[in-house]
Design a protein around this nucleic acid. Structure first.
Lengths: 221, 221
DNA sequence: TCAGCAATGTACGAACCAGTACGTTAGCTA
DNA sequence: TAGCTAACGTACTGGTTCGTACATTGCTGA
């Protein structure tokens, strides 16, 4: 998440539309992720920027549109991370593991993003549905998965006729759950899924799971 | 004043503490699941029961305690379902698949429960932490997993030295994500993970994934 | 250099909402 | 059957919160 940090010259009124807008987005991301859509306070967001509530309405129109803008930027971040993935030089097994690890790392490093997505699901993806941007962004990861799967299936390394979207769901579910359900899981089972000491263990476990699924023999679907 | 359209019985003031309490819990479950903790309205819950807001405070003390009571009951339901699981007569592979399918089915049949857990995670499991009941309930599913794993590892069917809590996390993540992230996943990838036509497919996929992981050969951890 | 607009600040209002003060009644029991 | 109390209803309040009317200032182009 890009952060805007410029020396604030106190007393002076500085005009910088881009900076003001970006700063509002930064703080709003934190506040929405912290408290959920209804729990978030517009006044609180305003108080934590160098500008006022008036500017939130000036730039975004309202709380609802602000949340949509926050979502759009958060999805943009992960999409860009996925675009930088380069696995064409790897064999299918290594490539899939690499992709899974990128997802694992990104989710772990962006808990706010996970919370925003959870919140958006509570609201039944209403904001995504109403967003021009989010409606038509594809997933670079999905294209990568498709290529790897085709290659792996062609060479006979992967036994299953697995669908790319399904595999993406499988990888995402593990990575997402680990972050999204950290607190209830920890409270009920006494294990912190984000314990740094366990990080490598779960990262390996994810890769093992996916590879085992892709290479296991089983009855046709 | 007599009203023609007024039903004979519901107009009367009936006293039934247990029924009133249960009705409040029912409606509160729906309302919290629908709108989240902060989005839920105590007035709305009251309006949809046959009693008044006063009774919510009379029986539960406040919104916060009401939500905790809702969570306690929701967790009680899944705990009881898990207790009825009987897989001792099955071989380890079939037993694990059966357990995974029970989780799959329960999550699918209780989307409100999934939403409540998502909401509780947004609030960092604060209510679970403050609940006597929820703090110390174990998970019957976990005991079952432990027994099956021990049996499977002893007989050599399962190659890996897999931990029960980890396996529970793996199974839960897939089942939970399918319901919790249905809306954003559907909006972004155009696929409804709860499409009835795909139900058997995903149910099989889950079992295949878990069995593949448990039986695959791999380097020691 | 100054007009005009983009950008910003202040103060306020109307609606909402959790929680409560106070009054009432059903049904049990002595 | 009187009286007691758990169970219930009504009406209100105090604080909160989204949103806006109105005022102001910095920047830029003609």
């Amino acid at each position: 998440m890009t952060s805007v940090e410029e020396p604030a010259r106190p007393g002076e009124r500085i005009r910088d539309a881009a900076r003001t807008r970006a700063e509002i987005l930064d703080v709003a991301t934190q506040e929405f992720a912290r408290a959920g859509y209804d729990g978030a306070r517009v006044d609180e967001i305003a108080a934590r920027t160098r500008t006022t509530k008036r500017m939130i309405y000036y730039y975004f129109g309202g709380k609802e549109q602000l949340f949509t803008a926050v979502l759009e930027r958060a999805y943009g971040v992960i999409r860009r991370a996925e675009q930088q993935l380069d696995v064409d030089h790897l064999d299918p097994v290594a490539a899939i593991r690499r992709l899974a690890e990128l997802t694992f790392d990104h989710h772990e490093q962006h808990p706010d993003f996970i919370r925003l997505v959870s919140i958006e699901n509570i609201h039944e993806a209403h904001h995504i549905a109403g967003s021009e941007k989010l409606g038509k962004i594809g997933s670079p990861a999905l294209d990568v998965i498709r290529r790897i799967l085709a290659s792996g299936q062609e060479s006979g390394l992967f036994t299953a006729d697995v669908d790319a979207v399904d595999l993406h769901a499988m990888i995402s579910s593990f990575c997402f759950f680990r972050v999204s359900n950290r607190h209830t899981f920890g409270a009920l089972f006494g294990r912190d899924l984000l314990d740094p000491a366990q990080r490598a263990h779960y990262r390996t476990m994810l890769g093992d799971m996916v590879i085992a699924y892709l290479t296991a023999e089983r009855a046709a679907d």
